[in-house]
Design a protein around this nucleic acid. Structure first.
Lengths: 226, 226
DNA sequence: AGTTTTGTTCAGCTTCCGTTCAGGTTCACG
DNA sequence: CGTGAACCTGAACGGAAGCTGAACAAAACT
């Protein structure tokens, strides 16, 4: 899951980036409205968190602009305690939810999760694939009800594939969602992760949950029983 | 455990804060309804103690407002002796218990404990994890029926983890529940507490009650036998 | 005052995981 | 078949996250 964070205060921005990364989100950041506008146009984020008081271009205007261009990701706005009326304007402009500063990190996590869930259309936070269960809220995989020890990147890779089941996902798309900004890497990280994942979530090799589509990427296979 | 105390009389408020802190609770305070409303909306308290006679916004209205917004923490209301009918209104508005002023501190402690216990879903005040028993009301841990000498912070850390067993708790979440105000983010206090805790509650290292989840925090492990 | 207990910081150590690399395997073409 | 590209995999490295003993600071107690 990739998040764009737009916040001009250096200290707060740093804290939020840390916090979000700790929750295993991939975070890009922008310091002013101009940068935010551009990044939002160029990259396909899963969520944007926007502080309304911004230099150069106002947060409200950034949001309006995005929405005019049919950029769809959910937007969570941050407002200072005093000017709460901003939030109304923000919601009108096309934001999806708001948070008044200062806030507890848990509160932020909750809203972020809710928005992402709503957007990806998974009402419940558990995905079941036979023996394998993905607990999206605990960020944990279970095999035969036993927790599988996945590292952060392994889990994220699995989650992305599983939430796009049936579709072939290119290695480029995977890297873009796993890493922030610059990834001009010719490396085989993804192949390694997939290899380790396969071993861990299907040791006997019977399920074949992740299949290789040569030249195109990987696909998570599961037949949805209606 | 973090408590919001709403009381407009300076003297009483000071006394109560002291008393509660002495019981190792983390206490935030509000002097009027407006502040109370805001704090309750923004922070995730474990309990609120609300005096009904408040400036700016009446205590009853604060409670109603919170409950409308699905803010769930238990609420204990304080009423003056004369107007006991307030208490009915308060309970209707969504409070969980009441106390008539003046009261003995012991009585307050008892209600607070009871409400916190009820809220965390532990019918009885003892949690048993094999050899280790947590006595929530005595705020004490027992190992093989022998009391374990835990300091206040050690105990609180343990209690928070144990009452959220199975879930990974980040260091940030822990600090937020252990400390009232802003905290220094780059410090390893939590790691130290965890280290000391592990030594004390599981000297032989066989139980592995507290496991670390790299990048996510710590998790208290216990298999609930139905 | 002094003493003890508790909380916090620091530095060095250990463990783990993301990354790389090298060599092997499979597959799609001819 | 043969060849090259795409993919797999085991091993190793290095840096970051976490652990820990000890020193220091602050509080609580006498």
């Amino acid at each position: 899951m990739r998040i764009l964070l737009v916040e001009d205060e250096d200290k707060l921005r740093g804290q939020l980036v840390n916090a979000l990364q700790q929750q295993h989100y991939v975070v890009d950041m922008a310091k002013d409205g101009e940068e935010a506008l551009y990044l939002g146009q160029e990259y396909n984020y899963d969520l944007a968190i926007v502080d309304l008081g911004l230099p150069k271009i106002n947060g409200i205007d950034v949001i309006k602009q995005w929405r005019e261009e049919n950029i769809e990701f959910p937007i969570l706005i941050l407002t200072a305690r005093g000017n709460w009326q901003d939030k109304v304007e923000g919601l009108d402009a096309g934001a999806d939810d708001y948070l008044v500063k200062p806030f507890h990190l848990e509160e932020l996590y909750a809203r972020v999760k809710a928005l992402l869930r709503r957007a990806t259309g998974h009402a419940k936070s558990n995905l079941q694939f036979g023996k394998l269960v993905l607990d999206l809220s605990a960020k944990q995989a279970l095999l035969d009800n036993q927790p599988v020890e996945l590292t952060a990147y392994e889990y994220n890779t699995l989650e992305y594939l599983a939430t796009h089941q049936g579709k072939a996902i290119s290695k480029t798309e995977l890297t873009e969602h796993l890493y922030a900004q610059d990834f001009d890497r010719d490396s085989n990280v993804i192949e390694v992760f997939i290899g380790r994942l396969r071993k861990k979530i299907d040791p006997s090799g019977e399920l074949k949950l992740i299949s290789t589509v040569r030249g195109q990427g990987y696909r998570f296979n599961w037949v949805n029983d209606g």
